[in-house]
């Protein structure tokens, strides 16, 4: 993986909120066709990193680069076209129809929901609905959907952009195992189609199974970065989380289980 091959990268990223430093000199590059999981304890700066990648926050130092171009120098239209962002606990303020909600993902392509959509947009919406297995729910208002179904529609909205980079902040939080597995499968499929998928996760087991690469953030820095077996090794995550893990391996995939707090941490 060379620097120029990176779909998106951060260089020396420093992020501050008031006097507090949230991210302290992060250097990361993310390749197309890969799923990268960002894990770490609460307050490590995972969400902040994702917001910087999405161009929502302005770095105090360093920069985010999209295919080698500084993100700040690109207009909002190009940024939106290239990067899809699914925030944590995504919701809508109005009981929109599911298909309309998904179609919002086509706004970066110039779609206007008040005008007749062109075929490319409606096909992309249809594809996105199909990928989340949501076609039969498409005409329902989202307030009549279950939480899991609604989360799927939010995911479909992000997919509909068909952007080169897909950022998802804890997409499986508060989902039952079936939905969680399905969601991770969808992200995997996006990467298989060539997208650069970056996902913040709390579930290390899911991260190990579905990610090509895991970045562990702790204390505002990158604590580990590599394939699951390496990044989730005993010496790394135990210190990062302040927890003693039982390192179980299932079918050759590490499945760390948090066992007890490390009081002397």
């Amino acid at each position: 993986m060379t620097v120029t091959a990176a779909a998106i990268a951060v260089r020396g990223l420093v992020s501050r909120r008031g006097p507090a430093v949230i991210l302290d000199g992060i250097d990361l590059a993310f390749a197309s066709g890969e799923v990268t999981a960002i894990v770490g304890p609460n307050g490590a700066g995972k969400t902040t990193l994702l917001r910087h990648l999405a161009g929502l926050d302005v770095p105090a130092a360093g920069q985010v680069e999209l295919r080698g171009q500084p993100l700040g120098s690109l207009g909002p239209a190009i940024r939106a076209w290239s990067i899809a962002y699914l925030p944590q606990a995504a919701s809508a303020y109005w009981p929109l129809r599911a298909r309309d909600l998904v179609a919002l993902g086509r706004l970066p392509h110039g779609a206007d929901l008040s005008r007749p959509t062109n075929t490319r947009d409606s096909e992309a919406v249809q594809r996105a609905l199909h990928r989340v297995d949501g076609l039969r729910l498409a005409e329902r208002p989202i307030d009549t959907l279950s939480q899991g179904e609604r989360a799927r529609m939010m995911m479909a909205r992000a997919l509909a952009t068909e952007a080169a980079v897909l950022l998802a902040d804890e997409p499986v939080a508060s989902l039952d195992p079936a939905y969680a597995l399905e969601t991770m499968g969808i992200l995997r499929a996006e990467a298989a189609r060539g997208a650069c998928v970056i996902v913040v996760l709390h579930d290390l087991g899911l991260a190990a199974r579905f990610a090509d690469r895991i970045v562990v953030l702790a204390n505002h820095k990158v604590a580990a970065d590599g394939p699951p077996a390496m990044a989730l090794a005993a010496g790394v995550i135990d210190a990062a989380y302040g927890v003693t893990f039982r390192h179980v391996t299932v079918d050759g995939v590490p499945q760390p289980v948090a066992w007890e707090r490390r009081d002397n941490y």
């Binding site: 929502l56 909002p76 940024r79 939106a80 706004l107 970066p108």
Partner: peptide, 21 residues
């Protein structure tokens, strides 16, 4: 401004990620 009001139904952050200034 209708399309950006549509985008805002997902909240300000998501609207910005969809290209709303």
């Amino acid at each position: 401004a209708g399309r950006w009001l549509d985008a805002l139904s997902l909240g300000e952050d998501t609207a910005r990620s969809l290209g709303a200034d």
